[in-house]
Design a binder for these strands. Structure first.
Lengths: 128, 128
DNA sequence: TAAAGTGTATTATAGATGTTAATACACATA
DNA sequence: TATGTGTATTAACATCTATAATACACTTTA
């Protein structure tokens, strides 16, 4: 389970969550943080599968999910590339952040906390 | 999928998450919010199963999970009751809140946001 | 032109997990 | 004694994840 670095993306796969989802998550994370260059080429399906010790079908499913989100471009015979447009990446970042905050709001409301209590906890908690 | 009220607890089961987990979540939520009285009797395994249109094994699994957390007491032949001690409930509430905040922190860090950005988002977002 | 490397699709198989079903047993109470 | 509790076991089934094997379409390059 040692991390694997490739094209600015760190892959670490654990059990407990679908592999293809973890691949999607880690590519998205690298994009949101700006760790990858736009238009950069990713490893081929078979190549990444070998690196991650995973079935090619699993990588392909992840790549296809990412392509549907406008984050990847795939060209038959050429390979898979990070999108060259900054908009889908920015949209992704805002989307995921909003979703994460909304999730916290729902959970805190479910538990009977106020917004002020949530803010206080978020200020107190260790960040890095 | 219409909600079912019983003993101060609202049950609503959706597909997409294990049924026994949803039962656990909703009992925990009611406890955290103070919606249920301590020492109160819950529906029997078979009774709740019938109400929720679910297998008795599924309810039993949820009850057992809750008992392991000290939130329920079960007595052979008598029934299942909310704990009579406030401590496990308070501990649960703090635990779940901390976990929820920690989850947000991890996600925001993964996306490259600062604590200040997270706080700003949490202040802006609609609460109720 | 041929070969190698791309993405893509299909089918079969296996394993894990969640859920139901049926049945039985232990215990408490009316 | 009968009924209603919690508890345990076993079997069956559905869904999802992942692998495996194979084939095809397309691009690049030797």
């Amino acid at each position: 389970m040692e991390p694997i670095q490739v094209a600015g993306i760190t892959f670490r796969l654990d059990p407990g969550k679908p592999l293809y989802e973890q691949i999607v998550d880690q590519v998205q994370g690298a994009l949101a943080r700006g760790d990858v260059k736009l238009n950069e080429r990713l490893p081929s399906v078979r190549e990444l599968a070998q690196l991650l010790k995973v079935n090619p079908n699993t990588v392909m499913r992840a790549y296809q999910d990412l392509e549907r989100g406008g984050l990847l471009m795939t060209y038959r015979g050429q390979g898979t590339f990070i999108t060259d447009k900054p908009q889908p990446v920015e949209r992704l970042k805002q989307d995921l952040a909003y979703r994460a905050v909304a999730h916290l709001v729902n959970e805190m409301r479910r538990l009977g906390f106020s917004r002020e209590q949530a803010l206080a906890l978020l200020q107190e908690v260790k960040w890095s």
